[in-house]
Design a protein around this nucleic acid. Sequence first.
DNA 1: GATGAATGAGTGTTCATTCAT
DNA 2: AATGAATGAACACTCATTCAT
Lengths: 210, 210, 210, 210
Amino acid sequence: MKNEKDTKSKLLASAKQEFMEKGYMQASLRNICKNAGVTTGALYFFFKDKEDLFASLVEEPLNTLKEIMNSHYTEEMEYVTAIHQMKNDFTDDMEAVEELLHYIYQHYEEFQLVLTKSQGSRFEKSVDFFVAVTEKHYRLLTDKISEIIKAPVLNDYMVHWISHMQIDIFVHLLTHERSEAAAREHMILTMNYLMNGWNGFFVVPDNNKE
Amino acid sequence: MKNEKDTKSKLLASAKQEFMEKGYMQASLRNICKNAGVTTGALYFFFKDKEDLFASLVEEPLNTLKEIMNSHYTEEMEYVTAIHQMKNDFTDDMEAVEELLHYIYQHYEEFQLVLTKSQGSRFEKSVDFFVAVTEKHYRLLTDKISEIIKAPVLNDYMVHWISHMQIDIFVHLLTHERSEAAAREHMILTMNYLMNGWNGFFVVPDNNKE
Amino acid sequence: MKNEKDTKSKLLASAKQEFMEKGYMQASLRNICKNAGVTTGALYFFFKDKEDLFASLVEEPLNTLKEIMNSHYTEEMEYVTAIHQMKNDFTDDMEAVEELLHYIYQHYEEFQLVLTKSQGSRFEKSVDFFVAVTEKHYRLLTDKISEIIKAPVLNDYMVHWISHMQIDIFVHLLTHERSEAAAREHMILTMNYLMNGWNGFFVVPDNNKE
Amino acid sequence: MKNEKDTKSKLLASAKQEFMEKGYMQASLRNICKNAGVTTGALYFFFKDKEDLFASLVEEPLNTLKEIMNSHYTEEMEYVTAIHQMKNDFTDDMEAVEELLHYIYQHYEEFQLVLTKSQGSRFEKSVDFFVAVTEKHYRLLTDKISEIIKAPVLNDYMVHWISHMQIDIFVHLLTHERSEAAAREHMILTMNYLMNGWNGFFVVPDNNKE
DNA sequence: GATGAATGAGTGTTCATTCAT
DNA sequence: AATGAATGAACACTCATTCAT
């Protein structure tokens, strides 16, 4: 009974290391088993195939993150719709972002796997998924705002790109900064930077011509 | 004689397609040859090995791009150093960026290969290379500007991230927009967006409080 | 369970045959597997690579032979040093040589492999190794004898050549005489022959001028 | 016309080097051509195939050596038959051997090729051939001598081994001593050594007890 | 005389996966 | 629950050789 968990978790640990080092495609099941001190057959007792092994590492945190993100976006849309007014207090936003960041950093390696080492598996489009979700949100949001301020909307590409950038910030931190505290500070600065860009699109048109 | 160019270019075309579809690592030389209607030996008459085949597709445009970028950065630094004043006319910048964009779009597929399909080859760090060059440039530039306006500099992470963003814009266009004309318009908007962020860091402190 | 030994020993038998026929370099693993009635993958379950397969056949007997030889030489040197006198009874020598011969003939094919079919593997210098060990021994021995009989020593080339010849006798038997009994008789004659040559060098100087 | 010879001799020189370094089997025609600065097609204009290329290097000296050896053996047999008496003057022998040695050293590399690097070609049995010729000679010679001195003959193995030894002396020199002068001195010593052994078999029974 | 192009079978090796025990 | 054995297709790459030009 203790062996059972042992073998499975030894395999998961070994797999995590191997996937981290070589990425999904280049990872060798042979190697994973060898480093776990276990035979190939054992692996196939616990996992259906290579992809299932990878999924066992990343699927749960990934789904949780999706939910966190969804609920955050839902909330924001409700807020904007309710007050029918543009936000100028971003405190809530920052809180939401920090919650995301915190969750990601609690599963640091898993998210690195899913976001940067999953090429070849069914998770290879995960970043695209998050971008797509974010894009849908921003599409709604900007339309709402445009309606409110009676100014032209961002075009589709810009909405997409801004969403991409938003997600990319997380990916970039994940690959460049191991400390959560440091990551949060970087995040604040980049968000600030992007806020300036964002605001520029809605209110600052005159700004340039000064 | 007519076969000469034929076979080699058939191989290059077939290789381009295969690398595009599967990426460097997963591409099969067998497959490339089969699709080119040629035996494996023929490939090895024209190319030293798999990497040489890939390099034959991307190396030249890549090097040219490096040169274009370098000369652009050199010019900009000379300008800023000379006038000892912050630029507020970005016309030259836009021209330079458009030159880059134009070159990239003339070798659309090659740059997609080198920037997004080169994992496993010696070109896998090409994006990082461009980011590093840009980062070095921005480091110098922001130091210069800080000195001029007597305001604090951007920290290292921000300089790195902005550089990353700058390069990522090109990579993103390359993977999302086939038309050069459309890409140019997207580019202008994104640059504008980032410019707002950038300016916010140097002069906007007062701006925000208006 | 019964298959376990079967496949591995079928592979070893098939490998022995193939290496015997074609030598290490020219031997084909595909062929070895085919003749063993097994797939290539099976071979790589039991052996790391081609060299490991070859080593599995020859390494152990080779090392044992090295030890036998070393202990024989050590003994002989101790004897000569102790009695400070030239041997004129070669009974012990013959016994030692016969022990060697016996061991070699118990692993007849393995030694043929290592001594005459190992070109291209890490065992290709095995003959040289035995010659070198023998040479070192004879160098010491002749120096000792020269000191005792106060006559000039053999020069380096002769010591090397005699050592080479000594080893070559075994190699020659191995490739020309399958029966151990016959080999022993040949060995006695050749040793006798060489003894005459050897003695000629130490005591017979006057002999020639008669 | 000068190019003609040029190309062919460049190829031969390059081939000699390659065969020397890697042996017949492992030598690469590709490589030979590349080092000669010539294409593969050119090689096949001058030489039928790999073996023909090798033969072009070694066949002539090899045949000449066979003739020299034959005529030497024929002479010796005629002498022994004529005088019906055992030789005790080996001056002629030494002269013959030195002639052989001289010829070999004038074609040093070619004989190294044929005697030690020809495995895989039709010349791989050249050493065996020389041994066989020598063996046949010694068989006749010892029979003759036995008849004269009325003592028992050497057995077949010994005749073979002595012949092998005789030839091996040349092969050994060829691989261990580049200078002809030095080789000759070594040769004299080794011949002396073997002579003692040889004489021991016919007349020395008494000799030892003097 | 010699080139440049091409063949096609061959090499050792690795892979994810399966399955009887 | 896990092992040890085995599969068979795939991999990048090398080879001696051929031949139209």
